[in-house]
Simulated assay, not measured.
Amino acid sequence: MTCDKVISRYLLAIFVVLCLALVVPAAAQETGKLTVQPGETIEVGAEPIILDLINLRKADTFNPVTELRLYRDDDPLKQLVQVIGVPNDDFFKINVYTLKGKYGRYFAYSKQDGLIHENSIVFVHASTPTATETVATATETPAETPVATTATATTQAPLPGLIAIAALGICGLLAAAQKR
């Protein structure tokens, strides 16, 4: 009887380790705040990113940033194109839906200080990662030189291999449970 309890505890421990092996890569994605410096360029994608805009405050008064403003031709003397409200400049979430396709230089604005000309950031559209495959190309040359071919290998995320290992581990657990 005690042997069965020990075996089931080991099987449970192995199962927990395998489950953690599947969960940890997903949880390891970047979820922290990005501290923004004046003049910095930030790539914005569909996934929301969290920005810390405290460094965009005016150094004299240190009043919080309440808006980010986009002006035509990056000139604050020209027409105001878009205003993005900043409820909390220490924890500001932004994504492509917030920008509504209007990328460019955004100037910090504070209700107490007004427009802060020297503190601006640039938002650009993040390139979407795509699986690229390059077809092997052959160049014909005279008989003295051999035909050269070039090809690049595609990269694959490590997660499918991890899933296969976990599946084999689960099959081993089931096989050990059936032996009992």
Rank of each mutant, 00 (worst) to 15 (best):
Y106N: 04
E30I: 04
F107K: 08
G169R: 03
V135E: 15
L11H: 04
L22E: 14
D73V: 01
D75K: 06
T98Q: 07
G114D: 01
L18T: 15
H125D: 02
L162K: 06
T154W: 02
G114L: 01
L70C: 08
G45T: 05
G101M: 01
L51F: 08
L20V: 08
Y10R: 11
F92L: 06
L12N: 12
S110D: 09
A46G: 05
G104T: 00
A59T: 11
G32P: 01
T35E: 14
A148P: 00
A131M: 13
L56C: 06
V65C: 07
Q79F: 11
A21P: 02
I116G: 10
A59P: 00
A143I: 03
V16C: 14
I121Y: 02
L68K: 10
H125F: 00
T31W: 05
E30T: 03
E47D: 15
I54Y: 05
G32T: 04
T155Y: 07
A151E: 13
F107A: 09
Q37H: 12
P146Y: 09
T139N: 14
E118R: 13
K111G: 00
L68P: 04
C171T: 12
D90Y: 11
G169D: 03
Y10C: 06
V96I: 13
V6W: 03
N119Q: 09
N119H: 05
Q156F: 06
S8T: 15
G172V: 01
V83Q: 08
Y10M: 10
